[in-house]
Design a protein around this nucleic acid. Structure first.
Lengths: 221, 221
DNA sequence: TCAGGATGTATCGCACCGATACATCGGGAC
DNA sequence: GTCCCGATGTATCGGTGCGATACATCCTGA
């Protein structure tokens, strides 16, 4: 059965939803900037496009998790320029319900959080979770990778001699990559376990850590 | 302009098409087996589903690149015939035109061949290409990754101090992965250059290397 | 003996991508 | 001065491929 009740808005995946809520938690943003952040901060593995983002934003507003704000947003120093007919820039802000929603998603540690497409984004927001959740996600990811490793080894044992050198090399390299990620996870898990990482000594209350998103040195003009 | 004329069947991507043609070149297969091979031999990075495979097969047959073989009852999927329908196993065979088509695709060394989704599959069929093509694809891939690396470095330099430890660690790990792949590519390129790999001394004529893909024990029926 | 798994074909909904359209703005070339 | 180009900005369309599922047959083992 396992209905899970993952999400009313997008039954599956919803990873974009998660990322958007998470980013907007720090500060309100408009679509363009959101998309840029989506493809740098979280980037590397994941890249979202406008074709995904805008429909997603629309849905989130409908759900009441985001609110649209008019004109120019407060965090932008240059926005002081008050040419009255500024282009209709839509700034999205996280509502209280949206915050709740994000919290709820953050706590989910089911298989979804371990999948390739999800894990990177989940990890990027680890700073806003409890250690408990972090551990579950990391360990879930690791066991998922180990399953995969086992399958690959079995498959290779079965077909090794039938494959040409390139196919073999591809598989070898693939396995090595997965093994490396497992080692990486091991280190992270160990690190969490030891509490060596001091940043979360103050419990999981250090959400919205006041990053002081800076206007400071951007006065190059 | 650069119209490219990549493909009439699926304007973009077509990576599945490529993989199917390539696999069927070795020997005829039916869908189920094809899909298994798709997710093991080529696997690791790519995983195709029936939802992609069957429509693709249909299209390829329409193009005349594949031919359906026996299986008693060739078509009529929604057959009203309720009983005693011996399972219609559809075996697909590469036609002469299909072979040509694959050859044509093999020779393409444009950006498409370097993308994440394509490269793995292209690499898996390197054994059927000329060294020339291999070099172009490998070098293309490498420069694509180096671009990405440059972007990541720039982005990190810009935002380093604003990010929390987890985001930072994610980026670091991502960069390291990419760097590793570059090193891997370097080795491969070097290896190709030296001709250390003996398998292709006999020019690019060693296509269809007669793998002796064994039908031997398949007489279970 | 019959449940459950592997084999086998096929489709539906939809998430997400890539390209594109359209508009404003700032700055550099000339 | 002005003109073009790239960055900023919102938005949609067509399409690929995924995940789940439906259905049927064959094989194996408690």
């Amino acid at each position: 059965m396992r209905t899970e009740v993952v999400s009313p808005v997008s039954r599956r995946s919803g990873i974009l939803e998660f990322a958007v809520l998470g980013l907007l938690r720090e500060s309100p943003m408009h679509g363009y900037e959101l998309r840029k952040r989506l493809n740098t901060s979280l980037g590397v593995f994941r890249a979202f496009s406008y074709g995904s983002l805008y429909p997603c934003l629309k849905t989130l507003v409908q759900q009441g998790w985001l609110a649209e704000e008019p004109g120019h947003h407060p965090a932008d120093p240059r926005a002081a320029a008050p040419l009255s007919n500024r282009r209709a820039k839509i700034v999205y802000r996280l509502t209280a319900e949206g915050k709740e929603r994000f919290e709820e998603l953050l706590d989910q540690t089911g298989p979804d959080a371990w999948e390739d497409e999800h894990f990177g984004v989940r990890f990027a927001f680890f700073g806003q979770t409890s250690r408990d959740v972090r551990m579950r996600v990391l360990e879930g990811r690791r066991s998922r990778l180990e399953e995969r490793l086992a399958k690959m080894r079995a498959s290779m044992a079965r077909t090794r001699e039938k494959l040409d050198a390139y196919t073999l090399e591809l598989q070898r390299h693939g396995m090595e990559s997965v093994e490396r990620e497992v080692r990486w996870l091991n280190e992270l898990i160990e690190s969490e376990r030891e509490g060596r990482d001091q940043r979360d000594q103050r419990d999981d209350r250090d959400l919205t850590r006041e990053r002081e998103w800076p206007p400071s040195d951007d006065t190059t003009t």
